[in-house]
Each structure stands twice: as structure tokens, then as C-alpha cells.
Computed example of a mutant assay.
Amino acid sequence: MTSITTKAYAANEAGGTLSLGEYDLPPLGENEVRIKVAFCGICHSDLSMIYNEWGISQYPLVAGHEVAGEIVEVGKQVADSRLGEVVGLGWHADYCQACYSCNSGDHNLCSKAQPTIAGRHGGFAEYVQASEKSVVRLPQGVDLKSAGPLFCGGITVFNPLVEFDIKPTDKVAVIGIGGLGHLGLQFLNAWGCEVTAFTSSESKADEAKQMGAHHVINSRDESELEQAESSFDFIISTVNVKLDWNLYLSTLKPKGRLHFVGASLEPLDIGVFNLLSGQKSVSGSPVGSPATIVTMLDFAAQHNIKPMVEMFDMSQINDALAHLKRGDARYRIVLQADF
């Protein structure tokens, strides 16, 4: 396989403006596929990488890990039948395929998993390539234009439902109604749960109900939180800011779980006795495995679950990133390739 040149938008320094350039992709591996990007979502993780908030960024950096497009070339060990498939690619572009996690189907927990935008070029580009194992076909009923965010935000909030055996009879709550939270409300409602939204924005209350919340609690009103004591079986936090976690723990029933999917950099201030007294749990999870992504996509298609997206042309990428950074996105941003 020969290498090719792709047009892409890259940051050349931490926090730098993205500029259009041409970059060489390495020869396609035997188990890899090459995707022509049609759409690519923008996620806060892209901002974190562009600004090197996690200390792992390498420049020039081509971010973008919510890819939707068509397979245009396959490696020697990939079945030719994958040519022309309409697919998505999320946070991981490859896995080691040899560790206990991979052999157990938990590829997302592989310690050697290769992020799509770390050490390789991501989807703010004309082409992107990845291991066949990390690329998932889009089922009928999933819209190509809005599919990208399902491969990051969607699977991030869906994965805990499977991992922790959330039941349709459970009372659940979502903290933060943004890019992750608005999808969490939709999945949990379709799952059959009684759903409560915690939001600090009164303007989002009506939208939260439209997206699946049966109840809305103003998270800035401590009295409303206190009234919710011992109400929930499961709370999922999608925010990346520090909150009074002990207060939220008090809203859990005995054996309830406070689960984190928002990438907060602040340490958790939690009193151990708040866990012991009700045998409560605190946990976190990343994106899901390819198998769970398949399940998530099928569930989304069956229940007509879609991200609410704002569309920008790829050439407007810096405007789109600024829109996200200001917190103005309602609720995910998707770029349409216009190279």
C-alpha cells in the first residue's frame, strides 16, 4: 500500500488557530481501512488536545474523532466487501488485540489502545485511516450527518447503561444538559427509566423535558437538591467542573451509584461516610467497545435517538471551535467536509 497526501486543518502550536495544509498519511496497514470524511463532529476533547490540557499533544495536530464517511480503500487482510461501506470512527483508531481486555471484548479498556487524535492524524481532514476493528458500519436509520457525535458523546453515556445493568424501573438523573447530557436523557428515557435532569440553566428546562426528562431540578437551588434526598438509583455526571458531590450523593438511594463520564480535572471531595452509610458507589467510564457501539447504534436507530447538531463547513472550523469554547453550542457541532 502506498502513502497518500490528505488536506487537513491542523494546530501548529498549543491553542493555535487551525490552518489548512497537506499531510502525508502512512501506507495503509494490512488490517486498516481508509475513510473519506463526509462529516466530523467537534468535541471538548478536541479542544483539550488542541490546547494540550492533558500534556500528550503533538504538533502539528489534526484533531477530530467523531468521523462519518465512506471506506475508500482497505488493507490486504481486510475483506473487500468493506469497500464503499458508510461507517463511523470514534475516540480509538486501534487496539492491541492481544491483552486481557481485548480478548474479553473490552477493547475500550486496552492500555495500548491508539487514540484517533494522539500520535496520528484525526478527522478534521479529507481522509483518515484506522484499524478495521475500530470502524463501525452505520445501520439503516442512523443519519450520516449527525452520526459522528454518537461515536463519542453517544457511546460515552450509553456504555454505563450496559456496564451497570441499568433497569427500566430505575430512577436515574443526569447532571449537565450539554453535548453529553442531552444524549443521556434520550437514551435513558428510551431505556424506560424515570429520568431527572440536573441543570444550572433555567433556559434548558423545557428542552430537557423535550429530550426525555420527566423532571428537572435546578442544580443551583440547594433546597431542590435537598428535597431530592434518597431519590435515585443512578446518577450520571457529564460535567467537567467541581460540584458539591456529597450533596449529590445524598440524593442517591441505598446502593445507588454516582457515575462520572465528564472529564473533570478537579479531584473529588467525597466523604467516605457518605458512601458507607448507604453502601453507595462512585465510578467512571470512558467510551465503549466496538461491540457496545454496534448495540448503541442499533438502539439509537430503533428509538430515533439523534444528537441535536449545529452544522458548519469544515472551512469554518475556527469559528466552530470558538462557538464551542464559548459554551454556545446547542448541543453538538458537526463539520461538513468541503475540501
Rank of each mutant, 00 (worst) to 15 (best):
S3H: 14
S3L: 12
T6H: 05
T6F: 04
A14I: 01
G16H: 00
D24E: 15
P26S: 00
C43M: 02
H44A: 08
V62D: 06
A63P: 13
A63W: 10
V72C: 06
E73T: 07
K76L: 14
V78A: 09
G84F: 03
C96P: 05
G105V: 01
H107N: 14
S111W: 13
S111M: 15
K112V: 13
Q114D: 11
P115H: 10
R120A: 13
V128I: 05
S134A: 15
S134G: 09
V136F: 06
V136R: 05
G141Y: 02
K145I: 14
L150E: 03
F151V: 03
I155H: 11
T156G: 03
D170C: 09
L185F: 04
Q186V: 06
N189P: 13
F198A: 08
E202Y: 14
S203R: 14
A208M: 02
K209C: 04
V216D: 05
I217M: 00
N218V: 01
E222K: 15
S223I: 08
S230C: 05
S230Q: 12
D233E: 01
F234I: 03
T238C: 06
N240I: 03
D244E: 07
G262P: 04
A263L: 15
S264H: 03
V272W: 06
G278S: 06
V282I: 10
T292L: 12
I293S: 07
A301S: 06
Q302D: 14
K306Q: 14
M311E: 14
N318E: 02
A322V: 11
K325F: 00
I333Q: 06
A337R: 09
D338V: 04
